[in-house]
């Protein structure tokens, strides 16, 4: 089956919401979708229960660049790292050993 060959069929999207009375978008979680438009619909269903007046951002997790919260720790390179070191962001065929 094709899906076994490539692990990331439906990539991960992070979801950010700003409520009606909110001042800024807040990260609420993630979901899987085939494309950004589907991700938006799913985010509306899953994280807002189709509440009106809520602003939704969906961002492919692979596009997020983040700093380390522990900047003062000398053992971490300061900033520019990927936020989640997910194996899902690497399209690795299933039969490659030790991956």
């Amino acid at each position: 089956m094709a899906e076994d060959q490539v692990r990331s069929g439906w990539p991960l999207y992070e979801v950010f919401l700003r409520g009606k009375r909110g001042l800024n978008h807040v990260h609420v979680g993630s979901l899987h979708a085939a494309d950004p438009q589907m991700a938006l619909r799913h985010a509306r269903d899953l994280y807002t229960r189709r509440n009106e007046g809520v602003s939704i951002w969906v961002v492919a997790a692979a596009d997020i660049t983040a700093s380390s919260p522990d900047e003062k720790d000398p053992f971490f390179a300061p900033s520019g790292d990927k936020v989640y070191r997910h194996p899902t962001f690497y399209r690795i065929p299933a039969d490659v050993p030790h991956m």
Partner: peptide, 16 residues
């Protein structure tokens, strides 16, 4: 889905 999402922050993959 919220919980799979939390597991994925640790490097797990939902399909897996």
């Amino acid at each position: 889905m919220y919980l799979y999402s939390a597991a994925e922050t640790l490097g797990a993959d939902r399909a897996d």
